[in-house]
Amino acid sequence: MSCDLTDPAILEAYQAIITGTPTNWLILGYHDTRDKISLYSKGTGGLEELTSNLKEEVLYGFVRIEDRFALLAYVSEQVSGLRRARALVHGKAVGALFKGSNVQINTSSLTDLTEERVRARLGLIEGPPSPAPSSPVMPSSPAAPTSPVSAPASRPATPVSPGPVAAPISISTATTASEVSSPVRTGSPLPGVSTPRTERQLEIEAAERKVREEMERQKRAEIAKRQKETQEREAREQELFAQKQAQELERKRKEESDRIAREAMKKQLMEQERLRGSGLSGYITIQRAGSPFWRRRFYVMSGQILSFYRDENDRAPVSDMKLGGQVVHIQDASLDVLIPNSFRVDLITGETHYFFSDSTKDKELAIAGFMKCNESA
């Protein structure tokens, strides 16, 4: 039945109470969990404000009254037996964390948490009430001296008899009581005697050290966690950067390889046309700018003109495309139209035409022919 008390707000509120700040009470609870205890609330209104914030569940409170501290374990009568047993175990764990407490009060009734009863448990209320004053002495009895015990402490009674013994006894008794009680109430130690206040102070200092050590441990753990997350993030970023660099280098290498191959093919085509007097020809499928349809055509490239025929036996072309100085860009379009061996041709007019060939070789020949026609004088 171990419990989780790692909520940093608990130690912060506890340290604020034991170090004398205006905060003088706190309440811990489960927030609908089974074993995780966290800070519910805290305040500066003392025991009265603490009890006004209690609810019908298992709660733990810690309060400062004057220079003493009380740990409260409040278990509502509506709580089941199993939760009561678990609260008993968890209360010990809370008590081990709040070592500065002078007393632990376990209760299921708010009547046990009145100011008078808690002060009595903390030893802040002195012994039994003062007895009722004795009957007044009649003036006709000159022989009866005034008793020093029955005289109020605030104003000593004037003795009836002027005898020399009564007054010294009254003064001596009052002085002795003052001397004995004064060190205990004010916390001034008698010579050679360790007072309860000194022991409590040592306990508070030890608790403060534990709180500081725990907060420092949590701080170091948080710093280490952030450093680890930063290192992992930087490693991922470096890996992604390296992948992007490799992809970019591969893309540039392929583009350069394709460019060299096309240049060589273009020169070859130009040489063939010079020697034979005829341009490049073959079958290709075209989707003109603004049209949703693909049409298969037989094309012939000659000079700066690209002519399209329905088939290779047609005498008259269906349409022509003048390419000289009109082509702005030619690039692969396999990802755009999801068709193998496809490419796009962007013209200076802003139009874009898509083409695809029957094979990779036919595609490269067609692209080289476009480049040749575009550059032909």
Rank of each mutant, 00 (worst) to 15 (best):
R83W: 00
Q304K: 11
M265N: 04
W294M: 02
L240T: 09
S281G: 09
A167Y: 11
H90N: 08
I105K: 08
Y74R: 01
D332T: 03
P142V: 14
R276D: 13
L240W: 06
N374I: 01
R233K: 12
E232P: 03
E234R: 13
E239W: 04
A85L: 15
E199I: 15
M138Y: 10
L249Q: 09
P133H: 06
V94Y: 06
Y283V: 05
L110K: 15
R212S: 12
G350N: 04
R296Y: 00
A224M: 05
I65F: 01
G123E: 06
S41Y: 08
Y60C: 00
G277V: 02
A242H: 07
D7L: 06
T360G: 14
F308G: 01
D35F: 07
A316K: 15
V149I: 11
T360E: 14
K219Q: 13
A289S: 14
I348F: 09
L39V: 01
I260H: 00
A316S: 14
A377F: 09
L275K: 14
P156V: 00
A70G: 05
A16G: 03
G100P: 11
K219L: 07
H90R: 04
T352L: 11
I260Q: 02
S302Y: 08
A166N: 15
L88D: 14
M371E: 10
G282E: 02
L97W: 03
E57R: 08
L275R: 15
S307A: 12
R68S: 07
M215N: 04
L110A: 10
R119H: 06
D332Q: 01
T352M: 11
L26D: 00
E351V: 02
R226G: 04
R262T: 02
S178D: 12
A96L: 09
G61M: 01
G187L: 04
D67E: 06
T6N: 15
P129D: 06
P8D: 05
T51E: 08
S161R: 11
A264P: 06
M270Y: 06
A144E: 11
G187A: 05
L54W: 10
Q78K: 10
Y60V: 01
V118Q: 05
E375H: 07
R117W: 08
R274T: 15
S182W: 11
V345S: 02
P152M: 00
P317L: 04
P189F: 04
E271L: 13
A246D: 01
A87M: 00
K225N: 12
E255Y: 03
Q227H: 11
M265Q: 12
K225I: 04
G282K: 03
P156N: 02
A316Y: 13
S134W: 10
G123F: 04
P317E: 03
V318I: 14
I27W: 00
T176L: 15
A13I: 01
T198E: 15
R84S: 06
P139N: 07
T107Q: 06
E375K: 02
T352V: 14
A333M: 01
A153H: 12
L110S: 11
E222T: 07
S281T: 08
